[in-house]
Design a protein around this nucleic acid. Structure first.
Length: 481
RNA sequence: GGCCCCGUCGCCAAGUGGUAAGGCAGAGGUCUGCAACACCUUUAUCACCAGUUCGAAUCUGGUCGGGGCCUCCA
């Protein structure tokens, strides 16, 4: 079974056939850098990071471009409010973005261009569009004449007449048609600007993505992604610009990730109900956030809530606990080698899930099954001497790690990760590590004396304070309840 | 008003024509001094109604409920 991708353009899953066999060009709209990233950005970037990793895993030589839009009305406005330059503001938030993405465990895209580095290309495309009669200059602005592009609204499937009914021309704009959009805006005082054939000015929103994608991936490429909210107007306008200028098909597969809701309600800047990545990482481990996001399909809406994240943490802990116990069981196990089909079988199921429009939720479900098998084998009597079982656990462990890496998961040292989460949770409880260890010691003493009443009393008291004890042959450890 | 999406076990969440993955929580069991952990077993006919079909959660029509886009937004 080969890779199938849901294409927003057709509204269907399609067999993935890249323009050049074996190679993929993918462009994903990045952020406008004027504020800290919120969890919606986290989702979009994690999703496409997963897609990028899987494309490579599936054998495609993938060029992944994710831009920074560093010139824009909102940047100018925010910079003016803070009394700093647009450049200083955008640099600050580019750095913040990079930090956030690194903490979420994202790999670097192949290219991370900035809009301001592509001003020449932006001007060239705008000029081409004017030359072709698709755009016009008016008072130092350049606008795209949407009624000249026959395919306009083909991605968002909207109706021009109805769109026009609600559209307005803002004061100061020189549009012929309210639906027209700016490719270039004449500079106002104190705005960043560049010289152009139409006078000093700056790019409009949308044109930068056409310029950067064609420069780095060519006029036609395979995958273009972003959040659903970018379908209109941003991606629609990109199509008009790029296909209008080049005369070639722009993008083969359009991919859009679903929204993040907070308490069933869309999270948005205008509603003010958004959390930044930094807020969330105060509360939860970054890998828990990533795990939570990937346990839903990328096109479904997800609901950010404490309960959901706590459950995600429990699920991810299950993986690390299994990996830890597998490591411990394998440590003293026989060195003899044996065949094991389990890893290969797991990988086949994983690929099948991921080939179906990157169904990471299904893929993780298969990995959970791998974990259960691993736990079951490890619990078998005389495990360490059973050559076949040891080989199977080795195989499964290695496969879970390998496939986890495709999702950007399970990269930590199990013991270290579990400790980290445990101590982070401990801080929220009214108990100290010393206390816990003292109580464990006291209980061990009681048990040695067969004073089980006292032993159980200590255990119950700790449980009431949120600490669960685990006895094993090696001794007693504890975890958060 | 126009366009679009969704409604699957207590909760989260896969599944788009052949009689419902997985996780969390719950129940029973194995293990245990007793527990916890782990493992085993177990828990749904898919909002509702009508239709197409040998057969539908999956297709069509309708009803109810929720949400999104149409303005900056991942």
């Amino acid at each position: 079974m080969s890779l199938r991708i849901y294409n927003t353009m057709s509204g269907k899953k399609e067999e993935f056939q890249p323009l050049i066999p074996g190679k993929v060009g993918m462009y994903v709209c990045g952020v406008t850098v004027y504020d800290y990233c919120h969890i919606g950005h986290a989702r979009a970037n994690i999703v496409f990071d997963m897609i990028f990793r899987y494309l490579q895993f599936a054998g495609y030589e993938t060029t992944y471009v994710r831009n920074y839009t560093d010139v824009d009305d909102k940047i100018i406005k925010r910079a003016n409010e803070r009394g700093i330059s647009s450049k200083a503001l955008s640099e600050e938030f580019i750095q913040a973005f990079d930090e956030d993405m690194a903490s979420l465990g994202l790999v670097k895209p192949t290219h991370e261009p900035k809009a301001t580095e592509y001003i020449d290309e932006i001007i060239a495309i705008s000029q081409t569009l004017i030359d072709k009669g698709l755009a016009y200059e008016a008072g130092g602005d350049v606008y795209y004449a949407v009624d000249k592009f026959a395919d306009y609204l083909k991605l968002s499937k909207r109706n021009m007449e109805e769109m026009q009914a609600g559209a307005r021309i803002a004061p100061g704009e020189q549009k012929r048609n309210p639906m027209d959009f700016a490719l270039w805006k004449a500079a106002k005082p104190d705005e960043p600007n560049w010289p152009s054939p139409w006078g000093a000015g700056r790019p409009g929103w949308h044109i930068e993505c056409s310029a950067m994608s064609s420069s780095l991936l060519g006029d036609s490429f395979d995958i273009h992604g972003g959040g659903r909210d970018l379908i209109f107007p941003h991606h629609e306008n990109e199509i008009a610009q790029s296909e209008g200028a080049s005369g070639k098909p722009f993008v083969k597969y359009w991919m859009h990730n679903g929204f993040v809701n907070v308490n069933q309600e869309k999270m948005s800047k205008s509603l003010g109900n958004f959390f930044t990545i930094r807020d969330i990482l105060q509360q939860y481990d970054p890998e828990v956030v990533r795990f939570f996001i990937l346990t839903s399909h990328y096109r479904s809406p997800i609901d950010f809530s404490d309960q959901n994240l706590i459950e995600a943490q429990a699920g991810l802990s299950r993986f690390y606990e299994a990996l830890l116990s597998a490591d411990q069981m394998l440590a003293g196990a026989t060195d003899e080698q044996a065949e094991s089909p389990l890893g290969e079988e797991l990988e086949a199921r994983f690929r099948e899930a991921m080939d179906d429009d990157f169904n990471s939720a299904q893929a993780i479900a298969h990995l959970f099954e791998g974990v259960r098998t691993m736990n079951r084998l490890c619990a078998t009597k005389k495990f360490k001497k059973r050559v076949d079982l040891v080989a199977q656990v080795r195989d499964l462990r290695q496969t879970v790690l390998k496939l986890g890496d495709v999702l950007g998961l399970y990269n930590s040292e199990p013991a270290v990760w579990l400790e980290k989460v445990k101590f982070a949770g401990l801080e929220k409880l009214d108990i100290t590590l010393d206390e816990i260890e003292q109580q464990i010691e006291a209980r061990l003493q009681a048990r040695a004396e067969k004073d089980f009443a006292k032993s159980d009393q200590i255990r119950d008291a700790l449980a009431a304070r949120g600490i669960e004890l685990l006895d094993s042959r090696e001794g007693t450890s504890w975890k958060l309840k």
